[in-house]
């Protein structure tokens, strides 16, 4: 049987950020769990529907203890989506995956007794958390400028905004930007614009020899690119699900 592989629609892969709650257990774990129960009794459903990451960087814990801790949290309806700061030896199949590269965010306010021991507190917290997030993204629009060639094997990752390179991007190098990518030189490597879900991001380069181009998760490999664009100054943008390109004069 032969499969038809000529479907030109590409698979869309996007990045998205969520604010996760990070639980950092403190020894002794029994005492810490008791305090957690206390918190839950004050505000039912505090962890409900929220991504929760377990941070074990600061505690001495072995695999059995970790497994037990995850079970204990499960009994309290706290589902762990990932574990941060754990040694590779701590993990076994079936456990939540290891997570890396988290960026700190402001502390989440824990409901206190004064705030009222009902579900309303959780609601308040949610309301408080949302404007905080919006504030962050409003502040984050920015750009970086790289004044030298980006060499093979190097990657520039800047989800916060635009990346400008004054120089070339070598074969085997990559630029990943939350906003647009500007290359004042030859683009031989990969350029991924709008990586955190920005369909209005564009890619500009003075000479196109790219291995791969992507905007907002829609990508094109060198093979799919129109041959008459090779070696030209080009800009690329997204229209619906297809990458459009045009020569710059």
């Amino acid at each position: 049987m032969t499969k038809v592989l000529t479907d030109t629609r590409s698979i869309r892969i996007k990045g998205r950020s969520f604010l996760a709650l990070v639980l950092s257990p403190e020894p002794p774990l029994d005492g810490w769990l008791a305090r957690l129960d206390d918190l839950a009794s004050r505000s039912a459903g505090f962890f409900l529907g929220r991504p929760v990451v377990l941070d074990v960087a600061d505690i001495e814990i072995d695999r059995a203890q970790l497994k037990n801790l995850i079970d204990e949290l499960g009994k309290r309806n706290v589902r762990i989506m990932g574990i941060e700061g754990g040694r590779p030896s701590l993990f076994e199949p079936g456990m939540p995956p290891a997570m890396r590269g988290g960026r700190p965010a402001p502390d989440v306010e824990v409901p206190t007794l004064e705030a009222g021991a009902d579900a309303k507190a959780a609601g308040n917290n949610e309301a408080a958390a949302v404007p905080q997030l919006e504030q962050q993204s409003a502040r984050a629009i920015s750009s970086i400028v790289i004044r030298e060639p980006v060499r093979s094997g190097q990657s520039v990752i800047f989800p916060e905004g635009d990346v400008t390179v004054i120089g070339s991007v070598a074969s085997g190098a990559e630029i990943i930007a939350g906003g647009s990518v500007h290359i004042y030189g030859t683009l031989r490597g990969r350029a991924l614009a709008g990586s955190v879900g920005n369909s209005s991001a564009r890619i500009f380069c003075r000479r196109l020899e790219a291995e791969l181009l992507a905007i907002d998760g829609v990508y094109k490999t060198a093979e799919d690119m129109a041959p008459n664009l090779r070696g030209q100054a080009v800009q690329l943008w997204l229209e619906g699900d297809s990458i459009m390109a045009e020569r710059l004069n």
Binding site: S152, A170, G172, A173
Partner: peptide, 10 residues
């Protein structure tokens, strides 16, 4: 050439 480029980065 590509390997040399990688080395220059290092």
């Amino acid at each position: 050439v590509r390997d040399s480029d990688r080395i220059i980065g290092l």
